[in-house]
Amino acid sequence: MQSRTLLLAPDASRLKRVQASLVGRRPWVFAGVLVIALLLANAALQGSFLDPGYWPGTLGTLAPFVLVAFASTVPVLGGGIDISVGPLATLVNCLLVATLLPHGLGSPLVAIPILLAVGAAAGCINGLLIVVGRLQPVIATLAMFFVLSGLALHISPAPVPAGDNWTRDLAGTAGPLPGGLLTIGAAVLIWVLLGRTQFLRNLYAVGGDDVATFSAGVNVAAVRIGAYVLSGVFATIAGVALTAVIQTSQASLAASYSLIALAAVSLGGTSLAGGRGGLIGSLLGAAAIFLLQELLAATGVPTSYVQLVYGLLLIAGVVLSGITSKGR
């Protein structure tokens, strides 16, 4: 309590803080530059990369990356963390491919509401464990990681092929639009609509300083739970987009998608301390990871390097975000 009122920092450090906050307002610049560089590199190596005919396919493959990154961003903005987004996406994937489709519940109008309900419920459980159970977000979502990935394995112990279904369009073109744009667009639309309510502002405020926000009269508990529910919804969309690309049920992808999501978030400049960053950063972060993977494939580097690179990117992102938030 006392330290706060005593922190009457001298002018020099205030200047620095202002500078830091300017960087803080465009934290995705780094990821953006990386994306542009990687795009150019990719285009140089593969002439076909920029061919519009390939875009739908590329976007379709990109979509699950971006969407898990979105899912992971929301709780992080609110000062928490969610490592169960990967398992939730794969659970949705397994549920859709191994349960709903074979049982004739696979039509979009039936399947999408069911899956969204599952995702929102999983997110809600996360939120309740953290807010009501007062568990640390890491532990709560780790336990959910176990439960959700266990459920996915239970449903589909071995990969099941999906057969012909509607998600296939999402990996290519759905009507006039690239399918990837549709799934990413759905998530962005939800985000923009929420931007018209107080929820987003309150979410950022909770992440910035939960005590201050609470005292200003915001229902912090509701905001936190809402953040995890939203994360669940985004992860659900990610699961659908993933199904579109792989067309099988793959319970084993859970961990690597959680990893990609966190890497994309921290690479996109969203502070893991909460309150700073946004979906643009995560979009660019995920795109950077994706493009890097493409680049490695194009240059003939064995795919085995991919995981090494993910890890390095994640550590780099974390160190970056740690340094900027320390300058505060």
Binding site: I81, I83, L262, L308, L314, I315, V318
Partner: peptide
């Protein structure tokens, strides 16, 4: 959590 996750991958 995050650092060690990255390290594992590395």
């Amino acid at each position: 959590l995050v650092v060690t996750l990255g390290m594992s991958s590395v």
